[in-house]
Protein backbone atom coordinates (compact mmCIF):
# COMPACT_ATOMS: atom_id res chain seq x y z
CA UNK A 1 0.00 0.00 0.00
CA UNK A 2 1.14 3.58 -0.71
CA UNK A 3 2.07 5.74 2.19
CA UNK A 4 2.08 9.52 2.46
CA UNK A 5 5.56 10.62 3.62
CA UNK A 6 5.85 12.75 6.77
CA UNK A 7 8.87 15.06 7.01
CA UNK A 8 10.26 16.66 10.14
CA UNK A 9 11.41 20.26 9.76
CA UNK A 10 12.50 21.86 13.02
CA UNK A 11 9.66 21.51 15.49
CA UNK A 12 7.25 20.86 12.69
CA UNK A 13 5.87 17.90 10.78
CA UNK A 14 5.38 18.56 7.10
CA UNK A 15 2.97 16.56 4.92
CA UNK A 16 2.32 17.16 1.25
CA UNK A 17 -0.64 15.25 -0.14
CA UNK A 18 0.01 14.79 -3.83
CA UNK A 19 -2.25 11.91 -4.78
CA UNK A 20 -5.96 11.30 -4.85
CA UNK A 21 -6.18 9.35 -1.57
CA UNK A 22 -8.55 6.47 -1.08
CA UNK A 23 -10.25 6.31 2.30
CA UNK A 24 -7.96 3.70 3.92
CA UNK A 25 -4.90 5.72 2.90
CA UNK A 26 -6.42 8.82 4.51
CA UNK A 27 -7.11 6.86 7.70
CA UNK A 28 -3.52 5.56 7.68
CA UNK A 29 -2.18 9.10 7.33
CA UNK A 30 -4.28 10.20 10.29
CA UNK A 31 -2.83 7.39 12.43
CA UNK A 32 0.75 7.91 11.21
CA UNK A 33 0.61 11.65 11.89
CA UNK A 34 -0.79 11.24 15.40
CA UNK A 35 1.94 8.72 16.21
CA UNK A 36 4.62 10.93 14.68
CA UNK A 37 3.58 13.93 16.82
CA UNK A 38 4.27 11.86 19.92
CA UNK A 39 7.47 10.13 18.78
CA UNK A 40 9.08 13.23 17.29
CA UNK A 41 7.75 15.62 19.97
CA UNK A 42 6.57 17.97 17.23
CA UNK A 43 4.84 21.23 18.15
CA UNK A 44 3.24 21.84 14.80
CA UNK A 45 1.74 19.98 11.83
CA UNK A 46 1.63 21.56 8.40
CA UNK A 47 -0.49 19.88 5.71
CA UNK A 48 -0.05 21.10 2.16
CA UNK A 49 -3.16 20.39 0.08
CA UNK A 50 -2.23 22.55 -2.93
CA UNK A 51 -2.05 19.49 -5.19
CA UNK A 52 -5.50 18.23 -4.23
CA UNK A 53 -8.20 18.59 -6.88
CA UNK A 54 -11.00 17.66 -4.53
CA UNK A 55 -11.58 17.44 -0.79
CA UNK A 56 -14.78 15.61 0.09
CA UNK A 57 -16.38 15.23 3.52
CA UNK A 58 -14.21 12.20 4.30
CA UNK A 59 -10.92 14.01 3.71
CA UNK A 60 -12.44 17.03 5.47
CA UNK A 61 -13.15 14.87 8.49
CA UNK A 62 -9.62 13.48 8.37
CA UNK A 63 -8.20 17.03 8.49
CA UNK A 64 -10.49 17.92 11.42
CA UNK A 65 -9.51 14.76 13.29
CA UNK A 66 -5.81 15.42 12.80
CA UNK A 67 -6.29 18.97 14.11
CA UNK A 68 -8.23 17.77 17.18
CA UNK A 69 -5.77 14.98 17.98
CA UNK A 70 -2.76 17.27 17.64
CA UNK A 71 -4.42 19.88 19.87
CA UNK A 72 -4.74 17.23 22.57
CA UNK A 73 -1.06 16.40 22.03
CA UNK A 74 -0.11 20.10 22.36
CA UNK A 75 0.64 20.74 18.70
CA UNK A 76 -0.96 23.18 16.25
CA UNK A 77 -2.23 22.10 12.82
CA UNK A 78 -2.29 24.32 9.77
CA UNK A 79 -3.68 23.48 6.33
CA UNK A 80 -2.07 25.40 3.46
CA UNK A 81 -2.57 26.01 -0.24
CA UNK A 82 -6.19 25.03 -0.70
CA UNK A 83 -7.31 25.94 -4.21
CA UNK A 84 -10.36 28.19 -4.82
CA UNK A 85 -12.61 25.59 -6.49
CA UNK A 86 -11.86 23.13 -3.69
CA UNK A 87 -12.65 25.73 -1.02
CA UNK A 88 -15.93 26.77 -2.68
CA UNK A 89 -17.02 23.13 -3.01
CA UNK A 90 -16.20 22.37 0.62
CA UNK A 91 -18.22 25.35 1.82
CA UNK A 92 -21.14 24.36 -0.41
CA UNK A 93 -20.89 20.81 0.92
CA UNK A 94 -21.21 22.20 4.45
CA UNK A 95 -17.70 21.41 5.69
CA UNK A 96 -16.36 24.35 7.71
CA UNK A 97 -13.13 22.90 9.13
CA UNK A 98 -13.59 25.19 12.10
CA UNK A 99 -10.73 24.99 14.54
CA UNK A 100 -8.18 24.51 11.78
CA UNK A 101 -5.67 27.23 11.01
CA UNK A 102 -5.09 27.98 7.34
CA UNK A 103 -2.49 29.78 5.26
CA UNK A 104 -1.97 30.65 1.61
CA UNK A 105 1.18 28.57 1.07
CA UNK A 106 3.93 26.58 2.82
CA UNK A 107 6.05 29.70 3.50
CA UNK A 108 3.18 31.59 5.15
CA UNK A 109 2.18 28.42 6.97
CA UNK A 110 5.60 27.89 8.51
CA UNK A 111 5.69 31.57 9.52
CA UNK A 112 2.30 31.30 11.24
CA UNK A 113 3.15 28.00 12.87
CA UNK A 114 6.42 29.25 14.40
CA UNK A 115 4.59 32.32 15.71
CA UNK A 116 1.92 30.09 17.27
CA UNK A 117 4.53 27.77 18.78
CA UNK A 118 6.37 30.78 20.26
CA UNK A 119 3.14 32.11 21.71
CA UNK A 120 2.25 28.82 23.33
CA UNK A 121 5.78 28.39 24.69
CA UNK A 122 5.81 31.87 26.20
CA UNK A 123 2.47 31.28 27.93
CA UNK A 124 3.88 27.99 29.21
CA UNK A 125 6.95 29.83 30.53
CA UNK A 126 4.68 32.42 32.14
CA UNK A 127 2.71 29.59 33.75
CA UNK A 128 5.94 28.12 35.17
CA UNK A 129 6.76 31.31 37.06
Amino acid sequence: MDKIPILKVGKCLLVTIQIDMHDRLAMALQDDLTNAIVTSRAKGVLIDVSALEIVDSFIGRMLSNIASASRVLDAVTIVVGMRPHVAITLVELGVQLSGIQTARNVDKGLETISRLIEQSESTDAYGDD
Partner: peptide, 17 residues
Protein backbone atom coordinates in the same frame (compact mmCIF):
# COMPACT_ATOMS: atom_id res chain seq x y z
CA UNK B 1 -15.79 24.67 -15.87
CA UNK B 2 -13.26 23.72 -13.20
CA UNK B 3 -15.60 24.73 -10.39
CA UNK B 4 -18.53 22.75 -11.82
CA UNK B 5 -16.28 19.73 -12.35
CA UNK B 6 -15.04 19.90 -8.78
CA UNK B 7 -18.56 20.15 -7.36
CA UNK B 8 -19.74 17.21 -9.45
CA UNK B 9 -16.75 14.99 -8.65
CA UNK B 10 -17.12 15.75 -4.94
CA UNK B 11 -20.84 14.89 -5.03
CA UNK B 12 -20.01 11.65 -6.88
CA UNK B 13 -17.39 10.81 -4.25
CA UNK B 14 -19.90 11.30 -1.42
CA UNK B 15 -22.55 9.10 -3.03
CA UNK B 16 -20.05 6.43 -4.15
CA UNK B 17 -18.89 6.16 -0.53
Amino acid sequence: SLIDQTKFITAASEIAR
